[in-house]
Design a binder for these strands. Structure first.
Lengths: 207, 207
DNA sequence: GTCTATACTACGATAGAC
DNA sequence: GTCTATCGTAGTATAGAC
């Protein structure tokens, strides 16, 4: 093997290892963020779960905020991937329902990182992250387009501002009703999903 | 004045002062809890806002958790007071709507204390507080009764478990959609309330 | 019951050897 | 890039004088 082949391979291997470790870190952060939220999550916990020293974590990410931000970016990328995979031939309303159900499934499985609804240091970091904001915008644009189509064809209430519909769907990803019903242990995950989907799209009123 | 008259009056005055101070404390806690949440709220801030020393706070309440708990109990009592005042002749659905709209109004005005949705030390304290649990149960019973009546007469979807309806209404008190729409500054508080009431009871689908 | 001053702890972040 | 050890700070809670 000549150097021209060996060196790139070695470098690629190193980079791959680094990426693997970082994605393992992000995976742990994601779980902890879903479990306890940003404030309650400690950097020590993350380090312990990944199995490395805390100082090593800080070689990968400069702060706790950046750590959480990376997890949020990954979650956003997953959402983009799911959205891209929704069959184009489906009706706009069905596309919206598919995405909403998917996000709630993640939440029920404890894989949806939950950021604090209140203002915090994390908010600032997220707003300043190009990767996060780009992902958020792309997701918003995709859903916003479907919402407008659905309203145009009369399957979603056209008298609601599209942005209100968008926020309402986003909010399902952190809906406390999901965990409350799960805690009750009276219903399966599928039943819980069906109920919350029903209240979301059909409302509480009888039809 | 003989001692039999003077002493009770003095004591009553003292007690009244104490109660006034404590209610001032609780009021501050309520605001801070609504603004930043339990974790981000510091005891120093509470003391500073009330205008007394931190150590004095701890003479009134034994811990930060008890402080927040007292605020939650007061919020629950307010809810009970509102519920008791709802006209009995109204239809069950209208009663539910009135309470829901009232809670969301409080939230929009920054007067609804928000506890962490995740598990925390506060949860344990609340669960162990008889005053809080009694209030919660009374509110739940009142709303639960109205929900069953509304379902019986077909104004609320009878195929939903009553408890799912109850949780869905409770969740409106901490709905992030309210603040998101408020941040957008495109709509008045009344318009925001109308929109969220619509999505809650009528759903997103067109009718 | 109010204050000032302080003890104690948890946690984010860093230094420095390897 | 990994570790051990440590710093600095923020924040809950308490001691003790008045």
């Amino acid at each position: 093997m000549n150097p021209e082949e060996t060196k790139p391979q070695k470098k690629s291997f190193k980079v791959q290892m680094l990426a693997a470790r970082e994605s393992a870190i992000i995976e742990s952060v994601n779980r902890l963020l879903a479990d306890k939220g940003f404030d309650a999550m400690t950097v020590d916990e993350v380090a312990a779960e990944v199995g490395i020293a805390k100082a090593s974590l800080y070689k990968h990410f400069p702060s706790k905020e950046e750590l959480a931000c990376a997890a949020m970016v990954m979650a956003m990328q997953r959402a983009q991937a799911f959205i891209a995979q929704v069959p184009a031939e489906q009706a706009p309303l069905d596309k919206l329902k598919a995405v909403t159900r998917w996000t709630m499934t993640l939440k029920l499985q404890g894989q949806m990182p939950s950021l604090p609804s209140q203002n915090s240091s994390l908010r600032a970091t997220l707003m300043g992250s190009k990767a996060y904001m780009d992902g958020l915008m792309e997701v918003s644009d995709a859903l916003g387009g479907w919402i407008e189509q659905a309203q145009a064809q009369g399957s979603v209430n056209p008298s609601l501002p599209a942005v209100a519909v968008l926020y309402t769907l986003f909010a399902r990803a952190c809906d406390p009703v999901l965990e409350f019903l799960k805690m009750g242990e009276q219903h399966s995950d599928e039943q819980i999903l069906d109920m919350v989907m029903s209240t979301c799209f059909d409302g509480l009123n009888a039809r």
